[in-house]
Design a binder for these strands. Structure first.
Lengths: 184, 184
DNA sequence: TGTTTTGTTCAAAAAAACTTGAACAAACCT
DNA sequence: AGGTTTGTTCAAGTTTTTTTGAACAAAACA
Protein backbone atom coordinates (compact mmCIF):
# COMPACT_ATOMS: atom_id res chain seq x y z
CA UNK A 1 0.00 0.00 0.00
CA UNK A 2 1.03 3.55 -0.55
CA UNK A 3 2.51 2.59 -3.88
CA UNK A 4 1.88 6.06 -5.21
CA UNK A 5 2.06 9.16 -3.09
CA UNK A 6 -0.68 11.70 -3.50
CA UNK A 7 0.67 14.79 -5.24
CA UNK A 8 1.64 17.29 -2.56
CA UNK A 9 -0.97 19.65 -3.79
CA UNK A 10 -3.61 18.81 -6.33
CA UNK A 11 -3.45 21.29 -9.15
CA UNK A 12 -6.59 22.18 -7.41
CA UNK A 13 -9.56 20.22 -6.19
CA UNK A 14 -11.73 21.52 -8.97
CA UNK A 15 -11.07 18.45 -11.04
CA UNK A 16 -12.99 16.43 -8.53
CA UNK A 17 -15.44 18.55 -6.72
CA UNK A 18 -17.46 21.71 -6.95
CA UNK A 19 -16.83 24.71 -4.77
CA UNK A 20 -19.70 26.33 -2.94
CA UNK A 21 -20.04 29.24 -5.29
CA UNK A 22 -20.01 26.90 -8.25
CA UNK A 23 -22.85 24.91 -6.77
CA UNK A 24 -24.75 28.13 -6.41
CA UNK A 25 -24.11 29.25 -9.95
CA UNK A 26 -25.07 25.86 -11.30
CA UNK A 27 -28.28 26.03 -9.39
CA UNK A 28 -28.92 29.47 -10.79
CA UNK A 29 -28.65 28.11 -14.30
CA UNK A 30 -30.74 25.11 -13.41
CA UNK A 31 -33.50 27.50 -12.50
CA UNK A 32 -32.94 29.70 -15.47
CA UNK A 33 -33.15 26.75 -17.82
CA UNK A 34 -36.41 25.77 -16.24
CA UNK A 35 -37.85 29.25 -16.61
CA UNK A 36 -37.05 29.16 -20.25
CA UNK A 37 -38.55 25.76 -20.81
CA UNK A 38 -35.38 23.72 -21.00
CA UNK A 39 -34.66 20.62 -18.90
CA UNK A 40 -32.90 21.25 -15.64
CA UNK A 41 -29.96 19.12 -16.64
CA UNK A 42 -29.25 21.45 -19.54
CA UNK A 43 -28.96 24.29 -17.11
CA UNK A 44 -26.67 22.34 -14.83
CA UNK A 45 -24.36 21.40 -17.64
CA UNK A 46 -24.20 24.90 -18.99
CA UNK A 47 -23.74 26.27 -15.50
CA UNK A 48 -20.81 24.00 -14.79
CA UNK A 49 -19.07 24.90 -18.01
CA UNK A 50 -19.81 28.54 -17.38
CA UNK A 51 -17.92 28.33 -14.10
CA UNK A 52 -14.80 26.78 -15.54
CA UNK A 53 -11.85 28.27 -17.34
CA UNK A 54 -10.75 24.86 -18.55
CA UNK A 55 -12.76 22.93 -21.08
CA UNK A 56 -14.31 19.76 -19.66
CA UNK A 57 -14.82 16.32 -21.09
CA UNK A 58 -18.07 14.47 -20.96
CA UNK A 59 -17.08 12.22 -18.14
CA UNK A 60 -15.75 15.05 -16.06
CA UNK A 61 -19.18 16.59 -16.38
CA UNK A 62 -20.83 13.33 -15.49
CA UNK A 63 -18.77 12.98 -12.35
CA UNK A 64 -18.96 16.55 -11.21
CA UNK A 65 -22.70 16.86 -11.62
CA UNK A 66 -23.47 13.26 -10.80
CA UNK A 67 -25.97 12.88 -13.59
CA UNK A 68 -26.26 10.17 -16.18
CA UNK A 69 -24.30 9.75 -19.35
CA UNK A 70 -27.49 9.94 -21.37
CA UNK A 71 -28.52 13.26 -19.92
CA UNK A 72 -25.12 14.77 -20.47
CA UNK A 73 -24.88 13.51 -24.01
CA UNK A 74 -28.30 14.86 -24.89
CA UNK A 75 -27.75 18.05 -22.98
CA UNK A 76 -24.48 18.79 -24.69
CA UNK A 77 -25.95 18.17 -28.07
CA UNK A 78 -28.85 20.51 -27.44
CA UNK A 79 -26.62 23.18 -25.95
CA UNK A 80 -24.35 22.95 -28.92
CA UNK A 81 -27.27 23.37 -31.26
CA UNK A 82 -28.35 26.41 -29.31
CA UNK A 83 -24.86 27.76 -29.65
CA UNK A 84 -24.49 27.84 -25.88
CA UNK A 85 -21.65 25.35 -25.81
CA UNK A 86 -18.91 24.55 -28.23
CA UNK A 87 -16.58 21.62 -28.42
CA UNK A 88 -12.88 21.76 -28.92
CA UNK A 89 -11.34 18.60 -30.17
CA UNK A 90 -8.19 16.96 -29.00
CA UNK A 91 -6.59 19.34 -26.50
CA UNK A 92 -3.61 17.12 -25.80
CA UNK A 93 -5.83 14.25 -24.79
CA UNK A 94 -8.09 12.67 -27.36
CA UNK A 95 -11.58 13.17 -26.02
CA UNK A 96 -13.94 15.88 -27.05
CA UNK A 97 -14.00 18.84 -24.69
CA UNK A 98 -16.57 21.51 -24.05
CA UNK A 99 -16.69 25.15 -23.17
CA UNK A 100 -19.56 27.52 -22.55
CA UNK A 101 -20.35 30.44 -24.79
CA UNK A 102 -20.43 33.45 -22.50
CA UNK A 103 -21.45 36.21 -24.87
CA UNK A 104 -25.00 37.05 -23.96
CA UNK A 105 -25.75 38.20 -27.47
CA UNK A 106 -24.81 34.79 -28.83
CA UNK A 107 -26.78 32.98 -26.18
CA UNK A 108 -29.92 34.98 -26.71
CA UNK A 109 -29.49 34.89 -30.45
CA UNK A 110 -29.04 31.17 -30.53
CA UNK A 111 -31.97 30.63 -28.25
CA UNK A 112 -34.31 32.77 -30.28
CA UNK A 113 -33.16 31.22 -33.50
CA UNK A 114 -33.76 27.71 -32.30
CA UNK A 115 -36.89 28.33 -30.28
CA UNK A 116 -38.70 31.43 -31.42
CA UNK A 117 -38.04 31.42 -35.13
CA UNK A 118 -39.49 27.96 -35.70
CA UNK A 119 -42.60 28.98 -33.81
CA UNK A 120 -43.01 32.03 -35.95
CA UNK A 121 -42.67 29.96 -39.05
CA UNK A 122 -45.12 27.45 -37.73
CA UNK A 123 -47.45 30.34 -37.01
CA UNK A 124 -47.38 31.23 -40.67
CA UNK A 125 -48.51 27.82 -41.73
CA UNK A 126 -51.26 27.90 -39.20
CA UNK A 127 -52.47 31.25 -40.39
CA UNK A 128 -52.59 30.03 -43.95
CA UNK A 129 -54.44 27.00 -42.78
CA UNK A 130 -56.99 29.14 -40.99
CA UNK A 131 -57.55 31.23 -44.09
CA UNK A 132 -58.11 28.08 -46.04
CA UNK A 133 -60.63 26.75 -43.57
CA UNK A 134 -62.37 30.11 -43.52
CA UNK A 135 -62.84 29.73 -47.23
CA UNK A 136 -65.20 26.86 -46.53
CA UNK A 137 -67.24 28.59 -43.84
CA UNK A 138 -70.92 28.68 -44.85
CA UNK A 139 -72.37 30.86 -42.14
CA UNK A 140 -72.16 34.51 -43.08
CA UNK A 141 -71.73 35.91 -39.59
CA UNK A 142 -69.23 33.33 -38.54
CA UNK A 143 -67.25 33.95 -41.69
CA UNK A 144 -67.14 37.66 -41.11
CA UNK A 145 -66.11 37.20 -37.52
CA UNK A 146 -63.46 34.73 -38.52
CA UNK A 147 -62.03 37.13 -41.03
CA UNK A 148 -61.80 39.82 -38.39
CA UNK A 149 -59.92 37.42 -36.15
CA UNK A 150 -57.61 36.34 -38.89
CA UNK A 151 -56.64 39.96 -39.42
CA UNK A 152 -55.75 40.33 -35.78
CA UNK A 153 -53.64 37.22 -35.76
CA UNK A 154 -51.82 38.31 -38.88
CA UNK A 155 -51.11 41.66 -37.34
CA UNK A 156 -49.75 40.03 -34.22
CA UNK A 157 -47.56 37.83 -36.31
CA UNK A 158 -46.13 40.80 -38.13
CA UNK A 159 -45.43 42.65 -34.92
CA UNK A 160 -43.67 39.74 -33.32
CA UNK A 161 -41.68 39.14 -36.45
CA UNK A 162 -40.35 42.63 -36.19
CA UNK A 163 -39.62 42.27 -32.51
CA UNK A 164 -37.29 39.32 -32.60
CA UNK A 165 -34.51 40.84 -34.69
CA UNK A 166 -34.60 43.93 -32.51
CA UNK A 167 -34.09 41.87 -29.39
CA UNK A 168 -30.97 40.36 -30.84
CA UNK A 169 -29.69 43.83 -31.60
CA UNK A 170 -30.54 45.32 -28.27
CA UNK A 171 -28.94 42.60 -26.24
CA UNK A 172 -25.23 42.89 -26.59
CA UNK A 173 -24.88 46.59 -26.39
CA UNK A 174 -22.83 47.33 -23.33
CA UNK A 175 -21.19 43.97 -23.58
CA UNK A 176 -17.46 44.01 -24.15
CA UNK A 177 -15.97 44.49 -20.73
CA UNK A 178 -16.80 40.85 -20.60
CA UNK A 179 -13.61 39.41 -21.95
CA UNK A 180 -12.37 36.29 -20.21
CA UNK A 181 -12.69 32.51 -20.16
CA UNK A 182 -11.75 30.52 -23.20
CA UNK A 183 -8.21 29.18 -22.99
CA UNK A 184 -8.52 28.80 -26.74
CA UNK B 1 -93.86 17.58 -24.93
CA UNK B 2 -93.44 20.40 -27.38
CA UNK B 3 -94.31 22.83 -24.64
CA UNK B 4 -92.00 25.42 -26.09
CA UNK B 5 -91.26 25.73 -29.77
CA UNK B 6 -87.65 25.98 -30.79
CA UNK B 7 -86.86 29.44 -32.10
CA UNK B 8 -87.15 29.37 -35.86
CA UNK B 9 -83.51 30.14 -36.22
CA UNK B 10 -81.01 29.97 -33.39
CA UNK B 11 -79.29 33.28 -33.14
CA UNK B 12 -76.60 31.06 -34.42
CA UNK B 13 -75.24 27.68 -33.51
CA UNK B 14 -72.21 29.25 -31.89
CA UNK B 15 -73.83 29.00 -28.51
CA UNK B 16 -73.55 25.27 -28.72
CA UNK B 17 -70.73 24.28 -30.97
CA UNK B 18 -67.48 25.46 -32.41
CA UNK B 19 -67.03 26.19 -36.08
CA UNK B 20 -64.08 24.74 -37.95
CA UNK B 21 -62.08 27.92 -37.99
CA UNK B 22 -62.65 28.37 -34.29
CA UNK B 23 -61.33 24.90 -33.59
CA UNK B 24 -58.27 25.83 -35.57
CA UNK B 25 -57.71 29.09 -33.75
CA UNK B 26 -58.18 27.41 -30.40
CA UNK B 27 -55.61 24.84 -31.34
CA UNK B 28 -53.25 27.60 -32.37
CA UNK B 29 -53.52 29.13 -28.92
CA UNK B 30 -53.20 25.75 -27.28
CA UNK B 31 -49.85 25.43 -28.98
CA UNK B 32 -48.83 28.96 -28.26
CA UNK B 33 -49.58 28.52 -24.58
CA UNK B 34 -47.46 25.44 -24.54
CA UNK B 35 -44.56 27.19 -26.20
CA UNK B 36 -44.68 29.82 -23.56
CA UNK B 37 -44.83 27.36 -20.70
CA UNK B 38 -48.50 27.65 -19.84
CA UNK B 39 -50.91 24.71 -19.58
CA UNK B 40 -52.72 23.83 -22.74
CA UNK B 41 -56.09 24.46 -21.18
CA UNK B 42 -55.15 28.10 -20.63
CA UNK B 43 -54.52 28.44 -24.32
CA UNK B 44 -57.79 26.78 -25.22
CA UNK B 45 -59.77 29.04 -22.95
CA UNK B 46 -58.10 32.16 -24.20
CA UNK B 47 -58.46 30.97 -27.77
CA UNK B 48 -62.17 30.42 -27.41
CA UNK B 49 -62.74 33.83 -25.90
CA UNK B 50 -60.55 35.36 -28.56
CA UNK B 51 -62.84 33.96 -31.21
CA UNK B 52 -66.03 35.31 -29.76
CA UNK B 53 -67.64 38.72 -29.91
CA UNK B 54 -69.92 37.88 -27.03
CA UNK B 55 -68.64 37.41 -23.53
CA UNK B 56 -68.96 33.83 -22.28
CA UNK B 57 -69.84 32.38 -18.92
CA UNK B 58 -67.87 29.69 -17.25
CA UNK B 59 -70.24 26.91 -18.09
CA UNK B 60 -70.46 27.93 -21.70
CA UNK B 61 -66.71 27.58 -21.81
CA UNK B 62 -66.89 24.23 -20.09
CA UNK B 63 -69.40 22.92 -22.59
CA UNK B 64 -67.79 24.33 -25.70
CA UNK B 65 -64.31 23.12 -24.89
CA UNK B 66 -65.42 20.00 -23.06
CA UNK B 67 -62.92 20.41 -20.26
CA UNK B 68 -63.46 20.25 -16.55
CA UNK B 69 -64.83 22.90 -14.28
CA UNK B 70 -61.63 22.89 -12.29
CA UNK B 71 -59.47 23.59 -15.28
CA UNK B 72 -61.65 26.40 -16.48
CA UNK B 73 -61.85 27.98 -13.07
CA UNK B 74 -58.09 27.86 -12.62
CA UNK B 75 -57.43 28.87 -16.18
CA UNK B 76 -59.65 31.90 -15.98
CA UNK B 77 -58.07 33.01 -12.78
CA UNK B 78 -54.58 32.76 -14.20
CA UNK B 79 -55.55 34.47 -17.43
CA UNK B 80 -57.13 37.28 -15.49
CA UNK B 81 -53.99 37.71 -13.47
CA UNK B 82 -51.98 37.86 -16.66
CA UNK B 83 -54.36 40.49 -17.94
CA UNK B 84 -55.30 38.28 -20.85
CA UNK B 85 -58.93 37.97 -19.88
CA UNK B 86 -61.29 40.26 -18.05
CA UNK B 87 -64.64 39.61 -16.51
CA UNK B 88 -67.74 41.69 -16.90
CA UNK B 89 -70.29 41.18 -14.25
CA UNK B 90 -73.99 40.78 -14.66
CA UNK B 91 -74.76 41.50 -18.31
CA UNK B 92 -78.49 40.91 -18.00
CA UNK B 93 -78.02 37.50 -16.52
CA UNK B 94 -76.35 37.14 -13.17
CA UNK B 95 -73.27 35.04 -13.85
CA UNK B 96 -69.81 36.33 -14.37
CA UNK B 97 -68.80 36.62 -17.99
CA UNK B 98 -65.45 36.72 -19.68
CA UNK B 99 -63.83 38.37 -22.65
CA UNK B 100 -60.35 38.15 -24.09
CA UNK B 101 -57.94 41.05 -24.13
CA UNK B 102 -56.91 41.41 -27.75
CA UNK B 103 -54.35 44.19 -27.58
CA UNK B 104 -51.01 42.53 -28.11
CA UNK B 105 -49.24 45.16 -26.10
CA UNK B 106 -51.35 44.35 -23.08
CA UNK B 107 -50.92 40.64 -23.54
CA UNK B 108 -47.17 40.81 -23.83
CA UNK B 109 -46.93 43.36 -21.08
CA UNK B 110 -48.97 41.28 -18.70
CA UNK B 111 -47.06 38.18 -19.50
CA UNK B 112 -43.69 39.77 -18.97
CA UNK B 113 -44.80 41.40 -15.77
CA UNK B 114 -46.07 38.17 -14.31
CA UNK B 115 -43.38 35.86 -15.64
CA UNK B 116 -40.21 37.72 -16.49
CA UNK B 117 -40.14 40.40 -13.84
CA UNK B 118 -40.26 37.98 -10.91
CA UNK B 119 -37.42 36.01 -12.42
CA UNK B 120 -35.31 39.10 -12.74
CA UNK B 121 -35.95 39.96 -9.15
CA UNK B 122 -35.16 36.46 -8.10
CA UNK B 123 -31.97 36.74 -10.09
CA UNK B 124 -30.95 39.67 -7.96
CA UNK B 125 -31.26 37.72 -4.77
CA UNK B 126 -29.29 34.92 -6.23
CA UNK B 127 -26.51 37.23 -7.30
CA UNK B 128 -26.29 38.68 -3.84
CA UNK B 129 -26.23 35.21 -2.45
CA UNK B 130 -23.40 34.24 -4.72
CA UNK B 131 -21.38 37.27 -3.68
CA UNK B 132 -21.93 36.31 -0.08
CA UNK B 133 -20.78 32.76 -0.65
CA UNK B 134 -17.77 34.03 -2.55
CA UNK B 135 -16.83 35.94 0.54
CA UNK B 136 -16.19 32.65 2.28
CA UNK B 137 -14.13 31.08 -0.49
CA UNK B 138 -10.67 30.13 0.82
CA UNK B 139 -8.94 29.07 -2.35
CA UNK B 140 -7.32 32.05 -4.04
CA UNK B 141 -7.71 30.87 -7.62
CA UNK B 142 -11.26 29.72 -7.16
CA UNK B 143 -12.14 33.03 -5.55
CA UNK B 144 -10.68 35.01 -8.39
CA UNK B 145 -12.47 32.88 -10.94
CA UNK B 146 -15.69 33.19 -9.05
CA UNK B 147 -15.41 36.94 -8.98
CA UNK B 148 -14.89 37.03 -12.70
CA UNK B 149 -18.02 34.96 -13.16
CA UNK B 150 -20.02 37.08 -10.82
CA UNK B 151 -19.13 40.12 -12.91
CA UNK B 152 -20.45 38.43 -16.02
CA UNK B 153 -23.68 37.43 -14.39
CA UNK B 154 -24.21 40.93 -13.08
CA UNK B 155 -23.63 42.34 -16.50
CA UNK B 156 -26.13 39.94 -18.00
CA UNK B 157 -28.64 40.89 -15.41
CA UNK B 158 -28.24 44.55 -16.22
CA UNK B 159 -28.63 43.96 -19.92
CA UNK B 160 -31.75 41.91 -19.54
CA UNK B 161 -33.22 44.45 -17.16
CA UNK B 162 -32.88 47.03 -19.84
CA UNK B 163 -34.35 44.77 -22.49
CA UNK B 164 -37.70 44.01 -20.93
CA UNK B 165 -39.09 47.54 -20.83
CA UNK B 166 -38.03 48.03 -24.42
CA UNK B 167 -39.93 44.98 -25.52
CA UNK B 168 -43.10 46.36 -24.04
CA UNK B 169 -42.53 49.58 -25.92
CA UNK B 170 -41.69 47.99 -29.22
CA UNK B 171 -44.69 45.69 -29.27
CA UNK B 172 -47.73 47.76 -29.82
CA UNK B 173 -46.42 50.10 -32.43
CA UNK B 174 -48.43 49.51 -35.54
CA UNK B 175 -51.32 48.29 -33.49
CA UNK B 176 -54.49 50.35 -33.79
CA UNK B 177 -56.16 49.06 -36.90
CA UNK B 178 -57.07 46.35 -34.48
CA UNK B 179 -60.31 47.75 -33.19
CA UNK B 180 -63.09 45.23 -32.71
CA UNK B 181 -64.56 42.75 -30.23
CA UNK B 182 -65.72 43.94 -26.83
CA UNK B 183 -69.45 44.60 -26.69
CA UNK B 184 -68.64 46.64 -23.61
C1' DT C 1 -84.05 30.84 6.59
C1' DG C 2 -83.90 27.03 3.18
C1' DT C 3 -82.89 26.12 -1.59
C1' DT C 4 -80.67 26.66 -5.80
C1' DT C 5 -77.12 28.36 -8.62
C1' DT C 6 -72.35 29.69 -9.35
C1' DG C 7 -67.62 29.41 -8.42
C1' DT C 8 -63.33 27.58 -5.77
C1' DT C 9 -60.30 24.09 -3.84
C1' DC C 10 -57.57 20.25 -3.63
C1' DA C 11 -56.51 15.22 -3.45
C1' DA C 12 -56.20 11.72 -6.63
C1' DA C 13 -55.80 10.22 -11.60
C1' DA C 14 -53.77 11.02 -16.04
C1' DA C 15 -50.56 12.90 -19.06
C1' DA C 16 -46.26 14.88 -20.20
C1' DA C 17 -41.47 15.70 -19.56
C1' DC C 18 -37.10 14.27 -17.92
C1' DT C 19 -33.56 10.97 -16.56
C1' DT C 20 -31.38 6.67 -16.46
C1' DG C 21 -28.58 2.93 -17.99
C1' DA C 22 -27.69 -0.77 -20.90
C1' DA C 23 -27.10 -1.93 -25.67
C1' DC C 24 -25.13 -0.23 -29.63
C1' DA C 25 -22.05 2.31 -32.91
C1' DA C 26 -17.81 4.75 -34.02
C1' DA C 27 -13.25 6.03 -33.53
C1' DC C 28 -8.82 4.96 -31.94
C1' DC C 29 -5.09 2.35 -30.81
C1' DT C 30 -1.66 -1.82 -31.16
C1' DA D 1 -8.37 -7.60 -37.14
C1' DG D 2 -9.02 -7.52 -31.90
C1' DG D 3 -9.55 -4.77 -27.91
C1' DT D 4 -10.37 -0.24 -25.81
C1' DT D 5 -12.21 3.95 -25.12
C1' DT D 6 -15.66 7.46 -26.18
C1' DG D 7 -20.14 8.90 -27.50
C1' DT D 8 -25.23 8.05 -28.97
C1' DT D 9 -29.81 6.07 -28.70
C1' DC D 10 -33.93 4.82 -26.81
C1' DA D 11 -37.17 1.96 -23.91
C1' DA D 12 -38.31 1.85 -19.29
C1' DG D 13 -38.48 4.20 -14.86
C1' DT D 14 -39.02 8.45 -12.33
C1' DT D 15 -40.52 12.93 -11.46
C1' DT D 16 -43.24 16.86 -12.47
C1' DT D 17 -47.12 19.04 -14.28
C1' DT D 18 -51.86 19.18 -15.60
C1' DT D 19 -56.56 17.72 -15.39
C1' DT D 20 -60.49 15.96 -13.16
C1' DG D 21 -64.43 15.87 -10.23
C1' DA D 22 -66.47 15.73 -5.89
C1' DA D 23 -66.75 18.29 -1.65
C1' DC D 24 -67.09 22.80 -0.10
C1' DA D 25 -68.03 27.93 0.21
C1' DA D 26 -70.50 32.01 -1.34
C1' DA D 27 -73.93 34.53 -3.40
C1' DA D 28 -78.75 34.89 -5.11
C1' DC D 29 -83.07 33.99 -4.74
C1' DA D 30 -87.81 32.94 -2.77
Amino acid sequence: MGTYSIPLKEKNSSEFELSDWELEVIDLFLNAANSVGLPKSFGQIYGLLFCRDQALTMDQIIKLLAISKGSVSQGLRALRQLGAVSSLYGRGDRKEQFVAEIRLRKLVGGFLKKQADPHMENGMFRLENIREILGKEKDEDSLERGQRREKILSSWHRQLSRLLPLVKIIVGQGENLTQNNKPE
